[in-house]
Design a protein around this nucleic acid. Structure first.
Length: 270
DNA sequence: GTGTGGTTACAACGAAAGAT
DNA sequence: ATCTTTCGTTGTAACCACAC
């Protein structure tokens, strides 16, 4: 939930660690409702971080994408966590909501807390929380579906993608991209990236053609699930150069998300 | 005027309690 | 055991206040 709030793996880990640290310091016996108490601590820390994060995001260069998260183990818990709720598209939609809408929505969705408890956690009236949640759900109603059979197609497309990148034959891309496919690149002003989303299969293919010479010669592609979407991790030596994930619609690629911002790729280098 | 956020009202639903 | 009533919760809409 912390990751869904922040859109950042590092921040989420910091917050969770911080919450557990203060739990150890405090006297646990006094806490009657542990679930609600933990939620409140997490929410407060998320809000604090978001206040400073929103200032930074106002000056963010180019499109902002959530930090990519790739499942690395066969741990069933990881598999559970990485399901549809963490797709890049879904996280992007979540981050279109206001902070309060996102908190109320996630407290309801993830922890299935009653509105009375959510109200005490966020310090608002019960009715207001219901309304906030209702409005959040209405905003999210346009959420794209990600069915499992779509994934198999996605993996095939990712392989084609890698082939196109490796050979430079961008015509391969035109066959698997929707005509109105959109490319989102997040360089955060630190890596070379497009300042606006790129729309149209031909223009997207041309973009990849243009950036191909800039990709280090010794790059290695790893086929990985990124934010529950089929994806590619591009590495040069131990360093992650960029992380690409793709969204499938009607058996074709509708959206391509590329994260090149080195700050968002740090945990891939660990 | 418009958008955003809060309050209030109300219908629908399900669970719990009581009556038969 | 089954039916009825009550009550709390939820989803939704309408309205209001405020900032821009």
């Amino acid at each position: 939930m912390s990751y869904q709030m922040m859109g950042s793996v590092m921040d989420a880990e910091d917050i969770v660690q911080d919450v557990f640290l203060s739990l150890e310091e405090g006297d646990g016996t006094q806490i009657r409702n542990a679930k609600s108490y933990l939620c409140k601590m997490t929410v407060n820390r998320c809000l604090n971080k978001l206040k400073s994060a929103s200032r930074q995001r106002e000056t963010y260069v180019g499109p902002w994408l959530p930090e990519p998260y790739a499942a690395v183990s066969d741990d069933p818990m990881d598999q559970y966590i990485i399901k549809e709720s963490l797709t890049t598209a879904y996280l992007l939609l979540l981050h279109q909501l206001s902070d309060m809408e996102r908190i109320v929505f996630l407290l309801r969705e993830v922890f299935t807390l009653p509105f009375s408890e959510i109200a005490t956690i966020v310090g608002k009236s019960e009715g207001n929380c219901r309304q906030i949640d209702y409005r959040a759900r209405r905003s999210l109603a346009q959420q794209p579906e990600t069915r499992s059979e779509v994934r198999a197609v996605g993996v095939r497309h990712v392989e084609t993608f890698i082939q196109a990148l490796a050979t430079g034959n961008m015509n391969l891309l035109l066959d698997i991209l929707k005509v109105d496919a959109t490319l989102y690149t997040d360089g955060g002003g630190k890596a070379q990236a497009a300042l606006r989303p790129i729309v149209g299969s031909k223009i997207v293919a041309r973009y990849f053609e243009a950036i191909r010479p800039k990709v280090p010669q010794d790059f290695v592609c790893e086929l990985r699930e990124v934010n529950a979407l089929p994806g590619i991790v591009i590495k040069t030596g131990p360093f992650t150069f960029s992380v690409i994930s793709i969204q499938i619609e009607n058996d074709l690629i509708s959206n391509v998300y590329i994260v090149m911002n080195p700050e968002k790729l740090l945990h891939f280098n660990l």
